[in-house]
Amino acid sequence: MSTTTAPPLLDVRRIYAEPAALASPRGQQVVGRWPGAELVEVASHWQIPELHGDEANVRRWVRIKREALVLGVLKSLRARPNGRSADFIAPSTSNGCAMACAYCYVPRHKGYSNPVTVFTNIEQITGYLARHVRRQGPKTEPNQCDPTAWVYDLGENSDCSVDALISDNVADLVATFRGLPDAKASFATKYVNRDLLTWDPQGRTRVRFSLMPEATAKLLDIRTSPVAERLAAIDDFVEAGYEVHVNFSPVVVEDGWLARWADLLDALGDATSEATKAQLACEVIFLTHNEQLHEVNLGWHPKAEDLLWQPAIQEPKRSQNGAVNVRYAWRDKQRHVEQLLALIAERAPWCTVRYAF
């Protein structure tokens, strides 16, 4: 009886590198992990025609994510105010992702496949963050982000659990926040990387496991850890010293969607201990899709668009950067939000809802 093995998440064959990034200790660490990879010097991580902005790349979408890696230097260090999931969005230590979720907004930034770019000036980034936290002083008023700590989102344009397979950037960030009593790091993830269990975060890093019903995830969450594996990891991360929350995201409206979410909430309850439930909270985020991404997806994963692109129940919304997004029609969405919140209150009353939209 033969068995098939899934291809590795990363099998790096070519590394595109800005010279300064390649010469840095962190750049050399990354190159050392894939010593057989071809090195290609580039002037800017933003301008690599064979990776970014070429429609032909749609045919090679997943292969590029698995085989290509980019090294760059982050030149603009800024912590942007947020106020929803976190108080601030931290400067990125990476951009792009090796996974390929069909609804992800990250590919819109660089176009098409958008493999991982690692920013190698990690000492500058962690130093900036430490200074920024100290300038805030103690948090004196609780908010939806956290009652006592300033929360910094680390992975706005990436998945930190995957980034940790590539370099020590995320480990360095966790270590930095371990020493900042007024602040807490936070990142959402769809990938279970058990190496993180050895990092001793001492409660100063919040991991948010993104969840959706298993059948929906099999269609939309491409190259991610199965939902059952994410559920099974939650208690272990709490025991390892992380604060663990969950993201119910994105919530996709489809036939039988509430029944599927009821099953997921029951599974979450079965998978978690009382200690985990006592600290658990969630964010609820309904699907927002993008016209350009819809067109890209039709070239490599059209079945996903049967679920994501539903003009009969969606309405356009133009974003601040001019992109045309679609979301569920406002009145219907309000009803759906109320339905899901009522379901959470019924099936998982121990799970605090931090916000829902």
Rank of each mutant, 00 (worst) to 15 (best):
P181M: 05
D168L: 13
P213D: 02
E141W: 14
D182M: 08
T176R: 12
A185F: 05
K190G: 01
N143H: 11
P201K: 05
L165T: 01
I166G: 04
I166D: 03
W199I: 10
T148K: 10
A164V: 01
A171Y: 13
F187V: 04
C160G: 03
P181S: 06
S158P: 05
M212E: 14
K190W: 02
P147L: 13
V170K: 05
Q144M: 13
D172Q: 15
D163N: 13
N169V: 12
A171P: 10
L211M: 12
F209D: 01
N169C: 14
V192W: 00
K190R: 12
T176S: 10
N169L: 12
A175C: 09
S158K: 10
D153H: 15
P181N: 05
K139T: 08
N193Y: 03
V151W: 01
S158A: 14
Q144D: 07
R194P: 01
M212V: 15
Y152N: 03
P147F: 10
R206Q: 00
A188K: 00
V170H: 07
Y152R: 03
A149V: 06
C160E: 09
E156M: 13
S158R: 12
V192K: 03
Q144K: 14
E141K: 15
P213G: 04
V174I: 15
P213H: 05
A185I: 01
L154P: 03
T205G: 06
T205P: 06
P201N: 06
A149C: 14
K184H: 07
A185D: 05
T176P: 09
V207T: 02
D168K: 14
G179M: 07
V207C: 06
G155Q: 01
Y191G: 04
T189A: 09
Q144L: 14
T176V: 12
R206G: 00
L173S: 09
D159V: 06
L154S: 02
V192D: 00
D182N: 12
E141R: 15
W199Q: 07
S186E: 07
C160F: 07
F209T: 02
P181T: 05
E156D: 15
S167I: 08
F177C: 05
A215P: 07
T176I: 11
F177I: 06
C160Q: 08
T216L: 15
A149I: 03
A175G: 08
D159G: 06
D159H: 10
D172W: 13
N169I: 11
G203C: 04
K139H: 06
S167V: 07
D153T: 11
P147T: 10
L197K: 03
N157R: 11
W199K: 09
V192H: 00
S210L: 07
T205V: 13
V192E: 00
V207N: 01
A185L: 05
D146I: 06
K190A: 00
F187P: 04
T176G: 07
Q202K: 13
L180F: 10
A215Y: 10
L165S: 02
P142L: 06
F187D: 03
G203A: 04
R178N: 11
A183R: 02
S161A: 08
E156H: 11
A164H: 02
F209R: 02
V151K: 03
F187T: 01
E214D: 13
A215V: 10
V151F: 02
E214F: 03
T176K: 11
P213Y: 02
V207P: 01
L173W: 14
A175T: 11
P201M: 09
N143G: 11
T198P: 08
D200V: 11
D200R: 13
N193F: 03
D163L: 13
